[in-house]
Amino acid sequence: MSGTVLAPMSAAPRGASARLMRRPLALIGIALIALVVAGAVLAPWLAPYPPEAQHFDGLTIEGAPLPPGGAYPLGTDLLGRDLLSRILYGARTSLVIGVVANGMALTIGTLVGLVAGYFRGWIGAVLMRFTDLMMAFPALLLAITLAAIFTPSLWIVAMVIALVNWVQTARVIYTETTALAAREFIAAERALGAGTGRILWHHILPHLVPTIIVWGTLGISTTVLLEATLSYLGVGVQPPTPSWGNIIFENQTYFQSAPWLVFLPGAAILLLALAFNLVGDALRDVLDPTQRGQD
């Protein structure tokens, strides 16, 4: 999770990773994430077919997609492409979006919220009014505009999603930082002569880790689905490159007759979000020194 990358080392109680490993739910989460990463990395070897290949025998006589089973383990889509192969390759896109775009959004949001919340004054006012403006602006419209300006590629889409998604994080971090900055131990630090950088990095950021983790795990599914929406509108990852989101959107009209086309990639998104959620919850507890000895 990018939250832990952000957190300074002093935030981690000694033996945190060992204690993480003792939590069964965290282990399940880690295993699920490993599974998705392995699927994405090993897609060329694991996938039975190339993801873009349209198979003549992948459709029924009437031209309907095939249900799971037989030569196509998870069935085929509208164009007779193998769903398993598309989901495996799609994991690459979705992981990049869910981890990179989401991580970028968290970083921007945390920085803006932290600076605005600690300094208040005119810096805070400018940053937060800008955040409010972004919040009021329809996210989709903004994403479409941005995606239209830049030629859509996976990384551009990730950037666009990050630029749209940091806003909520910034608001929440701002509120928490203002409360933290008023706490007495911050006054104590200032009385010791600690500089702003030190206070922000060593004394405020560690307290924000739980919030960052919660928003990070929530952000996984939001960003993956936003990518799907963008793909659907033609400004996301360009077809025929698969992503979990665009598999759902391409096939949603056939939800009645071929539910697996929506259900299976949907389950993949759910699983990924759940996995990060489990790890995130465990991380939050393990990193909290007051929770020690309660595992």
Binding site: S10, A11, R183, E184, F185, A187, A188, E189, H202, H203, P206, H207, D288, P289, T290
Partner: peptide
């Protein structure tokens, strides 16, 4: 309790 950072040794 308020004057010490609860997350630092």
């Amino acid at each position: 309790m308020a004057a010490l950072d609860p997350r630092m040794r």
